[in-house]
Amino acid sequence: MTRVIVTVMPRAGVLDPQGQAVAISLDRLGFGHVDNLRIGKRIELDVPGDDPEGQARRMCEALLANPLIEDYSIEVAS
């Protein structure tokens, strides 16, 4: 098993209502205006086989990310 970390983020240009709400709240807490606050998902998993990166990419294409609104990146633990 190989440790893989998949990060799924809203695509550039796609409105991120959750990020917007958090940015507004930070402003209210006195942190002032922050730019480009975007909220995504971190998915950690242990992948079997000798091609963990390819396997994770296929998982992203099949389920983990929706390409209409999300980009993903894959990090394989050494």
Binding site: V14, L15, P17, Q18, N66, L68
Partner: peptide, 16 residues
């Protein structure tokens, strides 16, 4: 939409 049988995707309401 998620199945690809209809176009587009449903996201969180802008009202949150």
């Amino acid at each position: 939409c998620e199945a690809g049988l209809l176009p587009g995707v449903l996201r969180t309401n802008t009202t949150l």
